[in-house]
C-alpha cells in the first residue's frame, strides 16, 4: 500500500508541519516515509505545499506529480492541484477559505469549514489537523495512536499543552459529515 499525499495552502496555515506529523506517524506505524516541503521565500507568506509518501516498501519518488489524496487550504492550491488527484482519489478542501468545489467527476471531494470550526474551538491553527482527521478517516493513512505520538515528537515542547485540543480537532475532522 502506498499513500501519496499533497498538502497545499498559504504559508502559516501549518501546511509543512501537517505533512511532517503525517510522515512521523507513518514512521511510527512502521512504514517507509518521505516528506518534501516547498522551500524558499514562500515559507513566509505566499503559497506552501508539502508532499508526503507513506509506503509499505521503500518510497520510490518523494517528488510527486500526482497523488491519491490532496488537502487544499486556499483557492490557488485548488486550481493548481485539482488535476493532480489520481482517478478515484480524494481532495479535502477547507471550505471556510475556498468557496469553490472541484469540477472533476472522477474524484471524491470533501468540503470542511476547517478554519471556522477551529476558530470556534478557540484556535485557528487547528484547521490543518481537522483536515488531516478527514484524510485519516477516509484513507486509514496512519493510526490515531501514532498520530498523537507524532504530535509530541514534531511540535515544540512549548506547544505540547495544546495536544489534547489537537486530538479533539482530529476527532472532529474524522467524524465530520457534510451537511
Amino acid at each position: 500500500m502506498v499513500h501519496e499525499i499533497i498538502l497545499a495552502g498559504f504559508g502559516g496555515q501549518g501546511i509543512l508541519s501537517a505533512g511532517r506529523i503525517m510522515a512521523y506517524a507513518g514512521m511510527l506505524d512502521g512504514k517507509q516515509v518521505s516528506w518534501l516541503p516547498s522551500y524558499g521565500p514562500e515559507m513566509r507568506g505566499g503559497t506552501a505545499n508539502s508532499s508526503v509518501v507513506i509506503s509499505d516498501k521503500p518510497v520510490d519518488s518523494p517528488v510527486l506529480n500526482s497523488a491519491g489524496s490532496i488537502i487544499v487550504m486556499n483557492k490557488p492550491s485548488l486550481e493548481k492541484f485539482e488535476s493532480w488527484v489520481d482517478k478515484g482519489g480524494i481532495i479535502i478542501i477547507d471550505s471556510s477559505i475556498v468557496n469553490k468545489d472541484v469540477s472533476r467527476k472522477d474524484i471524491k471531494s470533501f468540503r470542511i469549514p476547517a478554519t471556522k470550526i477551529a476558530s470556534e474551538m478557540g484556535n485557528m491553527a487547528f484547521a490543518n489537523i481537522i483536515l488531516l482527521g478527514k484524510l485519516i478517516a477516509e484513507k486509514g493513512t496512519v493510526s490515531v495512536e501514532n498520530f498523537k505520538k507524532a504530535l509530541y515528537a514534531v511540535l515544540p515542547e512549548r506547544k505540547h499543552n495544546l495536544i489534547p485540543m489537537e486530538m479533539e480537532a482530529l476527532k472532529t475532522g474524522m467524524e465530520y459529515n457534510e451537511v
Binding site: 518534501l36 522551500y39 518523494p62
Partner: peptide, 9 residues
Amino acid sequence: GILGQMMEV
C-alpha cells in the same frame, strides 16, 4: 535542494 530539504527515515 530536494535531497537537502526532504525528510525520510
